[in-house]
Design a binder for these strands. Structure first.
Lengths: 141, 141
DNA sequence: AGTATATGATTGTATTATACAACTATTTTC
DNA sequence: GAAAATAGTTGTATAATACAATCATATACT
């Protein structure tokens, strides 16, 4: 009984990752994510930070985040602020353009997901969100 | 109310994909997946098929699957069977070694996930599995 | 104060997963 | 039997990632 749920979760997680990382379908809806989306979102909601902190939060290598942030800076979505207390350090802040892009992208994602869930009852959506959150929290440990 | 659940699902899905595709933590537990695991699993449970069918099922490009299958063949996990009716076509079948590898890997995954869910009540596990499955099905459309 | 060590960030290099395009060898259609 | 379609592979390019080396500045030690 429990074992059966476990197997189901195991399989469905594998499938979810598989479908979400194939470019074929979702193209720009699940792929910008992995790099830019959460980064922009993090900065937009919790303010400027340096790459070290970001890398810690995302559990990515610092070099990876450094490149991502540099790419976003290059696109004009982020700008660098030198740390006044530490000559080595910078933080990245989001620009107006970055905020605009972020909101458009988020909006597109919400629309797409709403479409997927359009025949789901409200309480299932609620539970699904909560369980995903709970699962993600467990992944941090 | 509904909007709030939607936003939560949207965010948590992004986080789940993010965490699952970083190499840092899970290393070999979420990364072999994307390529080999579901492929081996598919062949083990539903029998030999060619790359075209696999690519269709996984919504990947045929060339991608062709390389993945070739890699697994090279490792001795799969072997190629020429189609007796069509000189162009092959199907891949799993070897004893492939089956062994698949089971070990699956076992490791189940263990890891059981660990993550160890304090979840049975009914939450059950619902989580069902909703993941339902969501994945909606992704096919 | 001056050297050694630690730290924040970037850059070089390699790997993996992917897609698209070109190609080969067969098969199907007309 | 020629033309078109199809199964699969291989060439080439891109994106996301990690690890190692490096640079510049800070901090710690004596």
């Amino acid at each position: 009984m429990y074992e059966q749920s476990l197997e189901m979760i195991e399989l469905e997680l594998a499938i979810l990752i598989r479908r979400s990382t194939s470019n074929t379908n979702n193209k720009k809806l699940w792929n910008l994510d992995r790099s830019a989306y959460l980064l922009l979102r993090r900065i937009a909601t919790k303010g400027a930070v340096g790459v070290k902190v970001l890398a810690g939060e995302f559990q990515l290598d610092i070099s990876t985040v450094s490149r991502q942030a540099a790419a976003l800076e290059h696109k004009g979505y982020l700008y660098k602020i030198p740390d006044p207390l530490d000559g080595r350090a910078y933080s990245f802040q989001i620009t107006e353009l970055g905020l605009k892009e972020l909101n458009e992208y988020k909006h597109a994602r919400l629309e797409r997901i709403a479409e997927l869930l359009n025949d789901w009852p409200d309480d299932e959506c609620k539970v699904f969100g909560q369980l995903l959150q709970k699962f993600n929290q467990s992944l941090l440990k």
